[in-house]
Nucleic acid binder design. Structure first.
Lengths: 143, 143
DNA sequence: AATATGTTGACAAATTTAGTAGAGTTTCTT
DNA sequence: AAGAAACTCTACTAAATTTGTCAACATATT
């Protein structure tokens, strides 16, 4: 019932890049965050395809945030890495709990699960990375 | 990032017992909820030791709720089966993120994780099983 | 051209979750 | 007292997911 280690790492990596305020290569990120190089590469790829991080190839390559920390939420990062947050196991709109003791009737717990999940997502969206940065850095804006 | 199947089953089982309003044996519960007999026995044991369900041995034995549905919350059931809910992986009070890029400084995400987890738990505590019962049953009280 | 970097998909190990087995104990009924 | 119908307990196995690794490749800079 926790976020996965991978998501935890992803948060660290984004945090690390937000603090650095400059391009870092995978090796530096890996050392800074104590995530193995290989695994951080994998996570970085997800962050890149999720549009949170930009990558640059070649000698002076590396990774940097694709937008300002203020515009990156905890939800962006976690959702990118492990998909949308949901308490209930049965996603999608028209779920009917054929197995519930009510038999074929909409699962009576679905609503509460969805409500709570929605709140969690809302909270995670409201929490942006500028909130964990030292004041000066938080003020700055990426181009 | 979902509740586990086991917790899901546990909720169904409690719901089933709440609807039944009478003692049921494991076989009946298993059939009603579509959880295998063996697995439901395992879950029932947890529910018993968690004080949510009472068990009775012998020929007329079986299981019944240990208290009225109104006094059993979603959180009671889920916590009994899979432990206290927490988003963050690092439980316990004095956690320090030695691995974070801040190095040895309290993890800056800890607070938000705990806040959100707290809200989830609060919501799950507020949701009691009488809320998913037909009106008449919900009104009744167990001795 | 050489080197430093990121990209990709497949693979493997570790951990957690899900489910099973069997021998034992208690209680009720007759 | 016997027997059956229940629950109890510990351990084990199987499946799924998470975590982490590898190797060959593509791209950019100097």
């Amino acid at each position: 019932m926790h976020i996965t280690l991978e998501a935890d790492y992803a948060v660290r990596i984004v945090y690390c890049l937000a603090l650095a305020e400059k391009r870092m290569d995978a090796k530096a990120i890996s050392e800074e965050t104590s995530v193995t190089l290989r695994f951080s590469l994998k996570i970085l790829r997800k962050l890149v395809s999720g549009g949170i991080v930009r990558s640059f190839k070649g000698t002076q390559g590396g990774y940097e945030l694709a937008r300002s920390p203020k515009e990156i939420s905890l939800n962006d990062v976690i959702e990118t890495v492990e998909g949308p947050f949901s308490l209930s196991r049965c996603l999608g709109g028209e779920y009917v709990c054929t197995k519930s003791s009510a038999g074929g009737v909409p699962c009576p717990f679905r609503r509460i699960y969805d409500e709570i999940s929605g709140e969690v997502v809302q909270r995670m969206k409201a929490f942006t990375f500028d909130q964990v940065l030292p004041r000066e850095s938080a003020a700055k804006k990426l181009p």
